[in-house]
Structure formats: C-alpha cells, structure tokens
Design a protein around this nucleic acid. Structure first.
Lengths: 167, 167
DNA sequence: TATTGTTATACTCTATAACTATA
DNA sequence: TATAGTTATAGAGTATAACAATA
C-alpha cells in the first residue's frame, strides 16, 4: 500500500505520492479540484436535511425577490427548467414554498416563500456556516475576503449576473 | 423574456436577474460555481485534441516521476483504477505512453512516457496557458499569485498531497 | 488469501426534447 | 404560432463490484 515498498525511488526524487508540481502551481487545476470538492461536501451536508444545495439557492432567491415566476428563477440560477420543477415539487411538498397561478397569465405560476420556508433557510445557512468554517479553516478573515474578492471578480467578468450590487 | 415586463418590481429592489447577494457573498458558492465552470471549459478545450484534462494530468505525473505503476498513478491522481485503464489505453493507442510488465512482480505494469508523449505535453500546456489567460483575465500577476496562495493553502489543509514541495 | 490490472454493471446528474395548457 | 410548466428519455461521468492472473 505504501508508494515505494522496495525503496527504488531515484535519489532526490519528488516526495512520495505527491501530485506533480506542475499541477499544484496551476490555479485552474486547484480551482477545479476545490470546486468539485466543495460541491460534493455541500451535497453531503445538505443531504441530512433531505434537501440539496439547489433547494437552498432557490429559497435564498425567493426570499430576496418575491413574485418570481418559475422561468425567471430557473434562468437566474442557471438551472434547467425541468430540473427546477422537481426542486419546487420537493419544497412545496414540505410546505416551504407555494405556487399560485398568475391571474394575468394562467400559464405562469408565481412562486413564493412560506414562513416555514424562511425557517428552513435559517437551518440551511447554519449548515453553510459550519461548512465554510471547515473548508476555509486555514484562512483568516483577511484571507477569506481576499479570496472572495478574486473569485468574485473572475465570476462577474464571465457573467455580469455575478456582479455584487454596490451597497 | 425580460425579467420585469410589466414594471412591477418593488422600488429599490435588487437588480434584475441578479443572483441573490447572499450567494454572491459566499466564497464556497463562488468556488463551487467557478470550479465546475473551469472543469467544463477545460474539457471543452482539450476535446479538440481528442483527449481530456485527465489525459494531461496522467502525462504530467509520468513526466515528473518515472517508473510509475498504474495503482500509484491512480491513487496519486485520485482516479478510479478502472478509469485509469481507459485513459492509459487511449494514451498508449496514440503512442504517448508505454506499458511494460514489471519483471519483479508480473502482476504490475510499469508505465512510462514516450517522446511523443512529451511532445503532446507541450501541446496540452499551451492549451492550459490560453485557458488560464481567458479565465483569469481580470486578475493581474499579483492577484493570481494571491489566489493561488489561498487555494493552495486550502487544498493542502485537507489533503497533504497538495502541499507544494519547497524549492 | 491478497493484490494488480481489467472488464462489466449500475447509479447519479444533467441535458434534450416531447407534451399540455394557455396565450 | 409561441410560451410556461411538466414529464419522459437519453447521455455523460463516475462509482461499484465481479473477474483473471500473479504473488
């Protein structure tokens, strides 16, 4: 199971089982690896609530801007409209959101948060805080702000919807 | 198609179609989003070569530490051993790597880079450089170093194999 | 019996596109 | 005809586990 059982590594060779320095020095490689890792961890954590990160993001969006139609929610979150149906079904089933027909256009549904939905949002936020503490443990507040700043600039450069509204 | 066709948004409401500020201020959310985005872009770019990012990482690993056995390559790269078989099949088929039986343990294969493999590595690196330029465009050199530093510290905190060997 | 490499299988996630009801 | 929501299908990517050869 050890990497060099017969001690035949070349003298001065790279540390056992370490990833290539070429990869470790590549910000894109780290970004990709860490990105999928956080996603996996988040799914894992949310799983115990019976929901997933997408359920949370839907609730978070609904809390900010009310009177959302399904299409706008899906587009904003870059979710497939078909996928969103399933998410809303889950949420509605647990009384966290409500769908109401739009009287002006009976094709549309107007989706809104319920009080239970707001309470669930608090639970989700607590999960995320714990997860952030775990994942960003080696970074102090200044580091986290610096990281967020760079990530935010990258994201908003490729997609204006990621621009943070100035306070 | 527009988000507010009837102009009924509350006064002072959040910008149209913008993601919730709660999400935009969350480093984990951005990390996850950007991470899957880079991965997707990388796959897309590598696709034109007939290979994928994993083929590249295998070649990069083989160039650094020679005489690798398949199990060690898979473990180091955190790849499924079954998946690695397919990757090596592809690479060997194009003459980029060679598999040779280990005489001391005939269950094992010793995998090594061929000259063609080294040349392909140059091509892959060029693709990655372009991709980094595109993806990290809004960041100057200092920003990129700062980003790499934080990502590197996070990664090595959770997995020692991500520690960069001191020069 | 345990391990290396291989192959086959199953499962998850997501993207595509057909379908309905309204407009 | 076009659009909102729904449903069903198919595909990629990945994980699980059975398998043959060797130790």
């Amino acid at each position: 199971m050890t990497a060099d059982p017969d001690g035949m590594n070349p003298v001065g060779g790279s540390p056992v089982d370490c990833l290539p320095a070429e990869l470790l020095a590549n910000p894109l490689f780290l970004l990709g690896r860490l990105g999928v890792a956080v996603k996996a961890r988040a799914i894992e954590e949310f799983d115990r609530t019976g929901f997933g990160p997408y359920h949370y993001s839907v609730l978070a969006l609904l809390e900010e801007g009310a009177r959302e139609t399904q299409a706008s929610v899906a587009d904003t979150l870059e979710l497939d409209r078909g996928t969103l149906v399933g998410l809303l079904d889950d949420l509605e089933e647990h009384g966290l959101v409500e769908r109401a027909r739009d009287r002006n256009d009976r094709r549309r549904y107007v989706v809104g948060l319920t009080p239970a939905g707001r309470r669930q949002l608090v639970v989700f936020r607590a999960i995320l805080e714990r997860l952030e503490e775990e994942f960003l443990a080696p970074l102090d507040e200044a580091d986290r702000a610096a990281l967020l700043d760079r990530l935010s600039r990258i994201a908003s450069h490729h997609d204006p919807r990621f621009s943070r509204p100035r306070l």
